[in-house]
Nucleic acid binder design. Structure first.
Length: 458
RNA sequence: GUGGUUGUAGCUCAGUUGGUUAGAGCGCUGGAUUGUGGUUCCAGAGGUCGCCGGUUCGAGCCCGGUCUUCCACCCCA
């Protein structure tokens, strides 16, 4: 009996039209990556499990897709682990490999393994799928593409500035207006926790703080209390909940709040430099916003952290994120190497562009010129002309059968083909073709010898 | 991982307290129109009602399970 085919939860097939639109985004991002001097690398779709485990926090570990060992994988498991049904202890015994969870950790691994071949500063980009065992929602998939650009080597803040410009350049090319790039600094978050006396609970503190715009002040307070942060500490942190006004003002308030912390002052200085420089250089599509409550991002970030949210009015999580990590390669044995990078979430950008109708019409154009097939003789006469067009780089094709003209034109119409060429009995006798402009409905006759004139109009 | 939600034609969706042969619009195929698509008119094809089981004389509709979709958590691109 034939089984009904299906694909796993959170995965998708892509039709030709969808692939065309996805490629448009890929091409736009790749083009700017290269314009900014980044070089491409690729890494395997799966890594050794131990390379990935422990890099993304407990929640991250849970979301990593583990690959079951081949062969008799239960053979080596000790009976006790099996009897106790201890998943955490069992996993490393039956799985040695796991699907890539993001592009940053594999990149860090790559840098360490290839350190002798790499010239610093090393600017690489990487566009590949990643996998997460998350529960799918709109804009959240189990297989999706990330487009990363990272610089390792220089600890200069000019890198952060450049990456913000890169974000802006890509979104400008995509025609995506009013994108907000939020920026914060890990040192600021760490200093706040220190100043209020909640240094031990830095992670729960930042996670709660991050939800301010979603669950409000009360919600944040409740969550902080629930995660063991003292009432006194929460009260101390409260002025931060209402920081508003422009960037300089916000940074001023923060500076006052953290005046006793050297770490905090470093973080504030960094943001001042970045925002001031971007202020001078200007952005075309994006706006940069300091946001003290921005805390998302993975555990390995140590400096600036970024998050890009979709334009207002579009229900979508972040469409990009990034930050600086001073010690990521340290985990793999290479000390004192700083890196900073950003990531674009292709699949979410796609949904945003689709919702706002921002894909150019020509993206779905598979063929520019379609020759109608009137029969064997006419089709044979069309082939050299099609060859001429193809040599000139024009996407052109002959309808494969001599189906009714109505059907062939309808096909051209559905495929959004802008020009149809008619070469029938009369044209064959006169060595001419009739070119029909599908949008206007107008027609023009060209002599075979004068085909270049038509090509010029394309 | 927790709680909820959705699934009927290729697509978007109707479908009465459970009752004979499950509908519409769009799309598709053919014709009006043997060299003119996107407009119009006519006709036609297309369904194991997600899947498995249960209740019932009888289930698209009720019950259980399962898969999927979307939503809220969690977390994130």
């Amino acid at each position: 009996m034939a089984q009904k085919p299906s694909i796993p939860k959170g995965t998708r097939d892509f039709s030709p039209a969808e692939v065309a639109k996805r490629n448009y985004i890929f091409d736009t991002i790749r083009n700017q990556f290269e314009i900014y001097g980044f070089q491409p690398i690729e890494t395997p779709s799966f890594e050794n499990l131990e390379t990935l485990m422990g890099k993304y926090g407990d929640e991250g570990d849970r979301l990593i897709f583990k690959i079951l060992n081949s062969g008799d994988y239960l053979n080596k498991v000790d009976d006790r682990t099996l009897e106790e049904k201890d998943a955490a202890a069992l996993t490393p015994q039956i799985s040695e490999k796991a699907l890539r969870y993001d592009l940053t950790v594999p990149f860090a691994r790559y840098v360490v393994m290839h350190q002798n071949e790499i010239d610093l500063p090393f600017k690489r980009y990487q566009i590949q799928p990643v996998w997460r065992a998350d529960r799918p929602q709109k804009g959240r998939f189990r297989e999706f593409y990330q487009c990363d650009a990272d610089v390792v080597g220089p600890s200069s803040l000019l890198q952060e500035v450049e990456l913000i410009q890169l974000y802006d350049a890509v979104f400008a090319d995509l025609g995506l207006e009013k994108v907000t790039i939020k920026i914060n600094h890990r040192k600021i978050l760490s200093a706040i926790a220190e100043v209020i006396g909640a240094h031990e609970q830095l992670i729960p503190f930042t996670v709660a703080l991050d939800k301010l715009d979603k669950i409000g002040e009360e919600g944040v307070i409740r969550e902080m209390a629930a995660s063991g942060i003292s009432e006194a500490a929460i009260r101390k942190a409260m002025p931060l909940f209402s920081i508003s006004g422009d960037q300089d003002q916000a940074l001023g308030v923060l500076s006052d709040f953290l005046k006793e912390s050297k770490t905090g002052e470093e973080g504030i200085e960094a943001l001042r430099m970045i925002t001031a420089t971007i202020g001078k250089l200007g952005l075309s599509s994006c706006r940069l916003q300091v946001d003290v409550t921005l805390a998302r991002g993975l555990n390995y970030y140590t400096g600036a952290i970024f998050e890009v949210s979709a334009p207002e009015g579009v229900q979508m999580g972040s469409i990009g994120g990034g930050g600086r990590y001073d010690d990521l390669t340290g985990i793999f044995g290479l000390k004192d190497l700083s890196g900073v990078g950003i990531s674009f979430g292709l699949d979410r950008i796609y949904l945003v562009l689709e919702e706002l109708g921002l894909f150019p019409e020509t993206v779905e154009e598979s063929v520019q010129v379609l020759f109608v097939n009137f029969g064997e003789k006419e089709a044979l006469a069309a082939l050299p002309l099609i060859g001429e067009l193809r040599k000139a780089g024009i996407k052109s094709d002959l309808y494969p059968t001599d189906a009714k003209l109505q059907k062939q034109l309808k096909y051209a119409n559905n495929r959004k083909i802008p020009y149809v060429v008619l070469l029938g009995k009369d044209e064959l006798e006169q060595n001419t073709v009739v070119v029909k402009d599908m949008a206007k409905g107008s027609q023009k006759t060209y002599d075979w010898k004068h085909l270049p004139e038509f090509i010029k109009t394309l």
